[in-house]
Design a protein around this nucleic acid. Structure first.
Lengths: 203, 203
DNA sequence: GTCTATAACCTGATAGAC
DNA sequence: GTCTATCAGGTTATAGAC
């Protein structure tokens, strides 16, 4: 039944390695990860990694593409839906996106730093164009032709994602517990639409 | 005269290594950087790195602390100034911070990912407390006691910093040139105060 | 202070037994 | 398919000549 993240015991060897790789790569990043870390995390031998995935690089690419899909996959459908209003898009986006990242907290910083360290490698896999020329952007242009839509896009994305990117800092400082942080993020789901709305009316 | 970033020729050997290390560490991150890269970038021999700085780790710590100082050093003074209004703080912050990051574009992502990968190591060097309990925060609480100040802090910081964090993505996609990006960021200096103001009045 | 040479170690990948 | 053993190459750090 539970096909996702059971106790990770009844998985095939190949899946065990992939799950372990996800965990370690997302935590440490590509460069700091050793194939031995992954094998150990999977409770398996190092040789099996190469048997199933040929190389560290190929295994990483596989996972990176999956994560890119996850990170961008939610955005485009919401912002390109031509049947929803601007308000609805903003609400849908902040809610879905915050939920996604609560479930995958390391996702944003992982993707952002790996893309930064290897831009040309993943360039063709970044479906940003679909966002930059979306129905959402056209609706923004209609409402506020005086302001470049990129600003609102950055704000919407940033207000949803940025707190998670800053979390390591606040956590390390010991001034914000995980529980309180999550409470704040839940609050944001309702606050972001209000804020965006207020910004759209400003001046 | 020009003591900062001259043609980097009249620098002492120690300074040459440090400048090269800054450049390489900020570009690649700690794990992906090899001491050979730094030596080569400095146009010097590898052994000199250890002669002057003992180890890769010690050299990195030195630079990391400097960068943390830079990243957080601007925030606290502005947010803790008890003679400025809330509006003034917001304007000062967005202006100074965006300028700082235009001059050091890799700074945010560098700090964020290195702290993430080694939280306990830099925990005691993160002066976030000064921000979380600042004059700015108290002013926010007065104006909007119904909303946790952390939200506005995240928004102000995020609206200034997040675009730079996303820049690699937009760049890699080829849909946003450096020149256009900078134009947008200059615009933001004036827009952020307006937006924050509108948010503070909302509902 | 600066270099070359090399030690000591680590890492990705494979050969070969089971 | 899975393991142990090991290779080949790279990496940090140091010894020692100049």
């Amino acid at each position: 039944m539970a096909k996702k993240k059971s106790v990770e015991v009844d998985l095939s060897t190949e899946e065990k390695i992939k799950e372990a790789a996800k965990k370690v790569f997302l935590k440490k990043g590509y460069a700091a990860t050793r194939t031995r870390d992954i094998a150990e995390e999977a409770g398996l031998n190092l040789a099996l990694l190469n048997y199933y995935f040929r190389s560290k690089e190929k295994l990483f690419d596989l996972i990176m593409l999956e994560k890119l899909e996850k990170f961008f996959g939610v955005i485009a459908p919401i912002l390109n839906n031509s049947t929803t209003s601007l308000d609805q898009k903003v609400t849908l986006f902040s809610n879905n996106y915050i939920d996604l990242i609560i479930a995958n907290p390391e996702l944003p910083l992982f993707i952002l730093s790996e893309v930064r360290h290897n831009p040309e490698r993943f360039a063709h896999k970044l479906p940003v164009v679909k966002v930059a020329d979306s129905h959402f952007v056209r609706q923004l242009q209609e409402k506020r032709p005086d302001i470049n839509p990129l600003h609102f896009l950055m704000n919407l994305l940033g207000m949803s994602v940025f707190p998670f990117i800053m979390k390591p800092i606040f956590h390390a400082s010991g001034i914000l517990s995980e529980k309180v942080f999550l409470t704040r993020m839940e609050e944001r789901k309702a606050l972001i639409p209000k804020w965006i709305n207020a910004m759209l009316k400003a001046k």
